[in-house]
Design a protein around this nucleic acid. Structure first.
Ligand SMILES: [Mg+2]
Ligand SMILES: [Mg+2]
Length: 145
RNA sequence: ACAU
DNA sequence: TCATGT
């Protein structure tokens, strides 16, 4: 199915980054309609896919919290990462090759992400950002050469 | 191959 | 050109 959707004008774009892979990295979330940076996180060492995964999960929690506390409904979370989206769907990042044992804070963060996913009765929508047709996701860090 |  | 992943 080669359906091409319209480029979204609402929702939250999340993107992960790594300076080296593995390397220092993190994620951020951007309000697509305004360009406002809504949340950001950095850590000393991780992989591209772990950063993308944790970013999506944080975005899901953020959207839920904004809705419940402030009645603000951000809509859909977008990610350009096939891998991270598959990990969110399965509620597990066990496919990672990265040994988190040297990074207990990261290990704990991943555990909490999976816990959040497994305990949630419902989650906000999350969809693939179609970079080919829409250009770079608005949350991108612009680190690629 | 596809997505990063 | 290398690494992370399905
Ligand atoms: Mg990305
Ligand atoms: Mg990017």
């Amino acid at each position: 199915m080669n359906e091409i959707k319209e480029k979204p004008i609402n929702g939250v774009a999340v993107d992960g980054y790594c300076k080296g892979n593995p390397g220092p990295g993190g994620y951020r979330g951007v309000d697509i309609s305004t360009g406002e940076i809504l949340f950001e996180w950095h850590t000393e060492n991780c992989t591209n896919n772990l950063a993308e995964f944790i970013g999506i999960v944080h975005g899901l929690g953020f959207i839920k919290e904004q809705s419940k506390k402030f009645g603000k409904n951000y809509g859909i979370i977008y990610s350009d990462s096939e891998i991270a989206i598959s990990w969110v769907k399965s509620k597990s990042s066990s496919g990672t090759k990265f040994n988190v044992d040297k990074y207990p804070l990261l290990k704990q963060r991943i555990f909490k992400c999976e816990m959040f996913l497994s305990e949630s009765k419902s989650l906000p929508r999350y969809e693939k950002w179609d970079t080919k047709n829409w250009g770079e996701i608005p949350a991108d860090f612009g680190n690629k050469k």
